[in-house]
């Protein structure tokens, strides 16, 4: 589990948590029909925080993270991202989405566009960046995720790990201030998990605000400054990683950790 990140020295110098609030969620509730998926969520994320969200399947982790960029709509409470409250106002939604990057479990790259086009699309159309400049930025980020030589291929020609790194690069091209990850490694083979986690660690080292739904506990221990445990649509426990893993308080957390860590 943790071997993927074990052999890496983590540079914590830039991982500073500031006082500035990046995401503020107050008493947020969400229903799917009559099913109460998210119950009274309160969460404040400061700029520079790296938060790992874990919990059993169906506990609402994905739903929570998807509410933050309005892929899902919440029914009550408040979500404030970068000082803008999410409401049904389309202008606000598009503004927030262009500032919050998101990586999906199944990458969701655009199969009919090359890697480079995948990366330049949003900057050109949403940010109105000139094409040359957008391509330069894209190449910069593709170099960062170590696949500049694949720029002119199509997503279908890449391995899963490479595709996920492209997806990360694609989000980064919008220069987001917050990155959301929804189980970015759970569709990947162990070898590829490492390359994606490495990319995510590098992002953390540069001080990116990150919310990751993941079961990579090694990553959580190495990088996160806070771990959140969710069950049945509620935040059951949150703590800094050392305490969370070594001294869990709630019985549910203990059970979950014993299932996921212990053999």
């Amino acid at each position: 589990m943790s071997e993927a990140v074990q052999d890496r020295q983590i540079n914590r110098s830039a991982m500073q948590v500031s006082d500035e609030v990046a995401i503020d969620i107050n008493n947020m509730n969400k229903w799917y029909g009559t099913f109460h998926v998210l119950r009274d969520i309160n969460l404040t994320v400061n700029r520079g925080e790296r938060i790992v969200i874990c919990g059993p399947s169906g506990s609402g982790k994905s739903t929570l993270i998807r509410c933050i960029n309005r892929l899902e709509e919440h029914q009550s409470g408040q979500i404030i991202v970068d000082g803008t409250e999410l409401s049904s106002d389309l202008k606000n939604i598009d503004k927030i989405r262009s500032e919050v990057g998101m990586c999906f479990q199944h990458f969701n790259l655009f199969p009919h566009l090359t890697i480079l086009e995948n990366c330049t699309l949003a900057p050109i159309w949403v940010r109105k960046t000139p094409k040359k400049e957008a391509e330069a930025t894209a190449m910069h980020f593709l170099e960062k995720v170590k696949i500049p030589d694949q720029a002119n291929k199509y997503p279908g020609q890449l391995s899963g790990g490479q595709q996920q790194r492209v997806a990360i690069a694609r989000s980064l091209c919008m220069k987001p201030r917050i990155m959301l990850f929804d189980e970015p490694t759970s569709a990947l083979d162990p070898e590829m998990i490492k390359e994606v986690l490495d990319t995510m660690i590098e992002l953390a080292e540069e001080g990116m605000t990150m919310l990751c739904v993941t079961h990579e506990m090694g990553f959580a221990q190495a990088v996160a400054n806070r771990v959140i445990f969710m069950d049945q649509g509620q935040i059951v426990e949150q703590n800094e990683p050392h305490a969370f893993f070594n001294n869990p308080q709630s019985d549910r957390t203990k059970l979950f950790l014993s299932q996921i860590l212990g053999h």
Binding site: K95, R97, S98, A122, M174
Partner: peptide, 8 residues
């Protein structure tokens, strides 16, 4: 969702 998440 991919398109939405990029702000298109």
């Amino acid at each position: 969702e991919g398109a939405d998440s990029l702000g298109l």
